[in-house]
Amino acid sequence: MDHILTLDSRQEAALQVIAEKFIAQHKGDALKALKEMIVLNGHLQERLDAVEGWRRATR
């Protein structure tokens, strides 16, 4: 884990709402929602890594 974020109460409440909606999209199956989130984060990390690699190569 590269970064640890600290959320204030307003951010925490907003995150809670988003999490509840995401789990609801998976018919209440939190494990299924978590698995999808892990896959989505993996794809995003690959894209970020590619952009970083491109930036380093063009310097």
Rank of each mutant, 00 (worst) to 15 (best):
G28S: 03
E12F: 05
V51F: 05
Q25L: 14
R56M: 03
N41I: 05
I38E: 12
K27F: 13
K32Q: 12
L40N: 06
I23D: 01
I38C: 04
R10W: 09
L34W: 07
A33P: 08
M37F: 10
T58R: 15
L40P: 00
M37R: 10
M1Y: 05
E46H: 07
R55C: 00
N41D: 10
E36H: 09
I4S: 06
A14Y: 00
E12A: 07
E52Q: 09
D8L: 08
I23Q: 01
M37I: 08
M1I: 10
E46P: 00
T58S: 08
K27V: 15
T58W: 14
Q25W: 10
M37S: 13
F22H: 12
Q11K: 01
V51G: 00
G53W: 03
W54L: 13
Q16F: 03
L7G: 00
M37L: 15
S9D: 15
D2I: 02
G53M: 00
K21N: 13
V39W: 01
R47Q: 05
L31I: 08
Q25M: 13
A19D: 11
K27R: 15
A13E: 11
H43V: 04
L34K: 14
S9N: 10
E12I: 02
L34V: 13
A33N: 11
T6H: 04
T6E: 10
Q45M: 13
R10Q: 11
V39F: 04
I18M: 12
T6A: 09
I23Y: 04
L5D: 05
A33T: 11
E36S: 13
E36A: 14
T6Y: 04
A24V: 01
R56N: 03
D2V: 10
L40M: 11
I38G: 01
A57P: 02
K32E: 09
G53I: 02
I38K: 09
L7F: 03
H3V: 15
R47V: 05
A14G: 06
K21S: 08
M1T: 12
T58M: 11
A30C: 00
W54N: 10
E20K: 14
T58G: 01
K35Y: 14
K35L: 14
M1F: 11
Q45E: 15
R10M: 09
E52M: 02
K35H: 14
V17G: 06
L5F: 09
K21V: 09
D2S: 12
A24Q: 13
K35T: 07
E12Q: 06
L40T: 03
K35R: 15
H43R: 11
W54S: 08
E20H: 08
E36K: 10
L48I: 00
F22Y: 14
A50T: 01
W54K: 12
E52H: 02
L44Y: 09
Q25F: 11
T6P: 00
A13D: 09
R47T: 02
H43M: 05
S9Y: 13
Q11I: 04
R56V: 02
L5P: 00
F22M: 14
W54T: 02
